[in-house]
Nucleic acid binder design. Structure first.
Length: 304
DNA sequence: TACCAGTGGACAAGGGCATC
DNA sequence: GATGCCCTTGTCCACTGGTA
């Protein structure tokens, strides 16, 4: 399946939404539209051609017609055909990408101090033409249509929120319908194993024995699909836990290191310095100063 | 004295490339 | 897709110094 890749932010912007029942003999006219047109059919069949590619959009299917591409109905409806449509615009043309090539790991945070900057690689994905769970999407589409028909100041912003929800649902559909390739299944199995065992001392050999694949290969699969090697993933979990303990307890560095599975407190200091740019002590001090500022700010508000 | 931070050496893990 | 080889990189251990 092909998907459309949109660079975000900003999210595509809502223009119009509608609902219609086409009668037998109705046929879409030809046009070149300057906006994206998301079509979702709940019953009947709609026949659309975009750039010489014919689509038969049956019940439970969706198609995104792209901005700037000519499209027309190549055949009239043969039965009552119920459709929802949503028009939206986006600043940059969408890229085409095969579903199995979508680098999902780039959507995730790195878990380092780099996350204070917004990622330049944020993307949103929509199926180009796919079968979707219409029943779960219909209430959302109906609300979009209702609000758009009775638009007022109070509901105007909600239209954009609903469009974002629709995009999230379609992207989730994209992930759900994807039959994972063997390397992805292996990467997920490794993550599941590490989520259970990250507090224990890390031995790649144990992971190897558990999953019955060469450690080298498991590492590559995880790197490809998760964005982290097994060790990097374990360290990420450990650092996140250590950060929580530094902020939420008075435990010493050694105790915290032990609790998160790092035998050597000095090593944890090195990890902190390399990943967060500061030592655990400095990190704890920063958290305390931040809490102090928040507390004094709240006090000033109460006084004022 | 306890805790934190810095450094060097040994070894395990990562990753590029080739192969089946 | 899966594996092996081999060099590079990162992690761990041991030790030392600075500071409260």
């Amino acid at each position: 399946m092909y998907c459309l890749e949109f660079a975000i932010p900003p999210l595509p912007q809502f223009l119009m939404a509608g609902h219609a029942v086409w009668k037998p003999g109705d046929q879409h006219f030809a046009r070149v539209f300057g906006v994206y047109d998301l079509l979702l059919v709940t019953r009947g069949t709609l026949y659309m051609t975009e750039e010489e590619m014919e689509y038969e959009i049956g019940a439970g299917k969706m198609l995104v017609l792209e901005a700037g591409l000519p499209h027309f109905g190549h055949r009239s409806c043969s039965e009552d055909t119920e459709i929802y449509w949503v028009h939206f615009v986006h600043g940059h043309p969408a890229a085409h990408i095969r579903q199995e090539d979508i680098p999902w790991s780039t959507l995730l945070s790195k878990g380092t101090n780099e996350d204070v900057e917004p990622s330049s690689q944020q993307r949103m994905y929509l199926p180009k033409f796919a079968a979707v769970d219409v029943q779960s999407l219909e209430p959302l589409l109906r609300e979009l249509d209702d609000i758009h028909n009775g638009l007022n100041v109070e509901t105007a912003l909600r239209l954009h929120l609903l469009l974002a929800e629709l995009f999230a649902a379609l992207q989730a559909e994209c992930v759900r319908t994807f039959e994972p390739e063997p390397s992805l299944r292996l990467a997920r199995a490794a993550v599941a194993y590490l989520n259970e065992h990250w507090r224990q001392s890390f031995q790649l050999a144990e992971l190897e024995a558990s999953l019955h694949f060469q450690a080298n290969y498991i590492t590559r699969c995880m790197k490809r699909h998760i964005g982290k090697t097994p060790l990097q993933y374990v360290l990420h979990l450990r650092l996140e836990e250590a950060k929580k303990l530094l902020g939420g307890t008075v435990l010493g560095i050694s105790e915290i290191a032990e609790k998160v599975g790092i035998r050597d407190p000095n090593y944890m200091i090195r990890l902190f310095t390399s990943k967060l740019g500061m030592t655990p002590g400095a990190y704890r001090l920063m958290l305390r100063q931040r809490k102090g500022e928040e507390a004094s700010g709240a006090q000033e508000q109460n006084d004022g």
